[in-house]
């Protein structure tokens, strides 16, 4: 799939991470990670399961605390923010969860409305409905307004999950395994949607995946997480142009001849 060249500002870092470490009990997951995300860029973080990719974006969004290191998001050090400041910062972050994390006791419209009415209290019912229609249209699911999450397919749930994050117009999108568990055709649709979101909403994104088709389709730059550190970085071709067995086996596992 061909991707339009996005406008990336390589002088404007929206996320800056230095020397990030994180352990769970005796397991050192991240061992000194350095990472920059530039405005307008889609950055793909590749790595095998359990290498700490999801932990990384959970630290960025303040869901987990780093053991050591600095995580600056939009110029603010996440670990030093008060709960109120963190809540304000999160309004500029969109997080698309691996399993969509839709509120299963609410309809699609109520899911979308949930963050909106809590942060934009001056909206009328008409405004709310209009905004919901806009984001549902953006993800191509205008007809699913009154459905329950249990009535949606995996791909539709992902789209609604993305729509729910877009409703607050975030500057940064964090996608956790956006194509996991989806069939190839639905995966391609999600990849197109990620590129569409980047273009239409002018977001900068980190996409966590181990799906190389997704990585190639959506990534402007790729980094590979190996042994708790980023070992490879560049375009898709640059990352895999190596004799490193670990990188090659990751590639071969995705594209079995």
């Amino acid at each position: 799939m061909h991707k339009e060249t996005p406008k990336i500002n390589y002088t404007d870092k929206v996320i800056e991470i230095k020397g990030l470490t994180k352990s769970f009990d005796e397991n050192d997951i991240l061992r000194g990670v350095d990472l920059d995300l530039y405005r307008g860029e889609n950055l793909v973080v590749l790595g095998r399961s359990g290498t700490g990719k999801s932990v990384l974006i959970k630290i960025i969004s303040g869901l987990l605390r780093a053991d050591e290191g600095i995580v600056n998001v939009l110029g603010q050090n996440v670990s030093k923010l008060t709960p109120k400041e963190l809540q304000q910062l999160r309004l500029k972050l969109g997080f698309s969860f691996q399993n969509s994390a839709l509120y299963d006791s609410m309809t699609v419209a109520e899911n979308l409305e949930f963050p909106l009415v809590r942060h934009q209290t001056n909206l009328t019912r008409r405004d709310i409905n209009r905004i919901i229609d806009v984001v549902l249209d953006a993800v191509g699911l205008a007809q699913s307004r009154d459905q329950m999450p249990s009535e949606l397919s995996g791909g539709q749930r992902k789209r609604i999950g993305i729509a729910r994050t877009l409703i607050l117009k975030p500057e940064i999108m964090l996608y956790d395994e956006p194509t996991a568990g989806l069939d190839p055709i639905t995966s391609i649709e999600i990849n197109k949607l990620i590129n569409e979101v980047q273009r239409r909403f002018k977001t900068s994104s980190i996409i966590i995946t181990h799906d190389l088709t997704c990585a190639r389709s959506v990534g402007d730059r790729l980094v590979m997480l190996l042994d708790g550190q980023f070992q490879r970085q560049g375009t898709f071709e640059e990352v895999f142009d190596t004799d490193d067995e670990r990188v090659q086996s990751f590639y071969n596992y995705n594209f079995i001849d």
């Binding site: 509120y103 299963d104 999950g161």
Partner: peptide
């Protein structure tokens, strides 16, 4: 809700 990350989803949406 915790297992399906719905609580995390509320938290990251600033709620």
């Amino acid at each position: 809700m915790k297992v399906t990350e719905q609580i995390d989803a509320m938290e990251v949406s600033g709620t």
